[in-house]
Design a protein around this nucleic acid. Sequence first.
DNA 1: GCGGCTTGTCATAAC
DNA 2: TCGTTATGACAAGCC
Length: 772
Amino acid sequence: MLYLKKYFTEGLIQFTILLSLIGVRVDVDTYLSSQLPPLREIILGPSSAYTQTQFHNLRNTLDGYGIHPKSVDLDHFFTTRRLLNQVRQLDRLSVPSTELNTWLVHRDSETVVSASSQSSPSITLDNGAGLENVNNPDATPAMRGGSGAPESTYNLNTADSSLGAVAPEGNQEQGNRDGNDDLTKEDIDLIDILWRQDIDLGAGREVFNYSNRQKESEEQKPSPQEKKDGNEEQESWRNGVNLQGAQPVDGETGESIPEQFPAPAVTTEIAVSNEEVPSTSQGLPLPTQVPSAEPQLDLEQQWQDIMAIMEIQAMEVNSTSSDTDSSSVSASSGTTEANTAGNFGLMTHSTPINQDVSLHQASLPSCSQDFPQIFNSQLDSVTIPPRTTMLRLSSNNNTNINSTFGTTNLTGMFFPPHINSSSNNITSTPILPDLFSTLLEESMLDEISLLDLAMEEGFSQAQASQLEDELDSDSGLSLDSSHSPASPSSSETSCSSAASSSSTSATFSEEGAVGYSTDSEVATVETEEGAVGGYQPGYSKLCRMSYQDPSQFHSLPQLDSISHNHTYNLPLSSAFPEHPELPIPAGKKAVRDKQSSKLQPPQDLMDKHSSRDERRARAMKIPFSNEKIINLPVEEFNELLAKHHLSEAQLTLIRDIRRRGKNKMAAQNCRKRKLDTIINLEQGVQDLRRDKARLLKEKMEFIRSIRQMKQKMQSLYQEVFTQLRDEEGRPYPPSEYSLQYSADGSVLIMPRGVTTAEQNRKPEKKQKDKKK
DNA sequence: GCGGCTTGTCATAAC
DNA sequence: TCGTTATGACAAGCC
């Protein structure tokens, strides 16, 4: 049950993100209240611990004490909207939505047609098959019996016409046996769940409680009439959806609801709109990933892969920026040729965002040439191999989705998020490497000429030297701006990679942050709290991932460099003479701990993993846990103290524990905040450097343009001067005369050496108006 | 042994 | 006044 619940919730979160990315308003608050630290931190980003918060005030707004006010779990409550906005700004995240978009909702008429048997070139069926293969490559009817519910959510290509969306392919076989309408009750139930999730994203989490619903269904089962009623009920709400119009919109979420075409056409294609109806089911599909061989290759992993690819692509794209721009523009304008976009799989994936993509004609260009195999293995099964059919994008019926995913966003999708994230100027940022290289070249090539120009054509010495300095500084700047090892971008990238890879570990901490624990987790924390008692910047300061047991990461090569194992919470012989232990080297110590743990009684084992205060509390026989002592609100804390008759020493210890515990968390928060500040400052520096580079480039362009104008002016001057004749018809020798421009626009020919004062004194002496 | 890093703790100011 | 938080400083432990 927890298993299902967890994956339902994860899927829902991911689905929510996808919906957000495509512009559908989703109230995440409801869903983010679940305890999913890794996902949450990946999705939501920085912990609230980075911001100063009046926890006392916020506490009153929290529902219960399940989350300690200082826990980073509080993120759900006061950072959701801000982070949701950030998520929406992450164009890169729209890539997975492509996957979503390709999940065709298609409905056959009453007849059940096997996807594989379809001769129609419709991508729909293939997609459906692909989806099934992807999500459950080993899917068999037998297996389906075990996890049929989640699987069924993936099979979008079957023929449950009433739903128009969800019916497992596997169930097609069953349907062949039992008839199309003979989906198992579980299937219908699940479909019901899926549908309700989709149309009512504000639903409580109990909606996803499969067993409960199963119970309900079982209660309904006995009576065929009731069953029939249930079907009618489903039918009714389906109809209700249909009645909402061509594009029904969920009133609560604003999400569009898939169109239901009443006509029993063969392979009726449903225009996939932004609503991404299918996504409805997509919230659930995630559970089906569970039985897959590598469930850890989830969305985050794919995103990280994509990010890594895009970083490479960004470089390549920069070399052919014009092509990129054109293709991206064309893609966004809805006149794209898929083949053109095929070079950029990500962009191609973004195109289905257009709601009028006809999936019947849609094809997803192969990503194989651009995507590593790791991603292909995920994507290819979802996307269809290159087809000759092209992605048809209708531009006449686009909703605001198109405005949301305009050219800019599409452009932004090609570049690493860390580049895009820091600047409002999305389009300018991606060309940074190119810009710098250009600047370098231009700097080198033009430096001399610019200085010459400055000297010759009016630039002061100071200006010239300044320009020279700027050019020099720019050169150095370009070299380190994007490769700074300390830059947040690289850090984030590697960190994200580590985080996503870390997701392969099945033992995620359920806590929000290392060192933070809720009361409900006291038991586990007390036993599991070990080496990492607090904030581990190595893999949590940037990733904001939290793990209880760092040993889980020792197998991860990405984290090899982060092998700190500060066992502060392990027994401290120095602090406790009563437990004298010789210091043991960490490596051997771990081994020894492992070995000794088999022999030691539980009490000793607990001591091993307890903090000093915990052991003190045990020694003093404090009747409640340290977590309670630390985390309880003061009222409850005082009540707790009053309830037990405690000695003065015990009370003192308890208050010390509380003070130290709170201070420990405060210190962790403080350090996090510091780090975040540093990271933000680094980001700001990079932004400023980028701005400086841009301004320098503009300046150089201006200088060049001024130089060109001056050259043009010089040529005109020569042309005019050579045409001038004196009273006798002889040309003026350039060595003796020059043209002077007066303020009123007139042009005077003056003997060289004549000062301006003289010119002012006798302007009429040799004045000749030249009307050009 | 030394230096760097991380974490816990204390003291103190501020709210 | 009390409780809590923030933060600098220090120490301990690990690598």
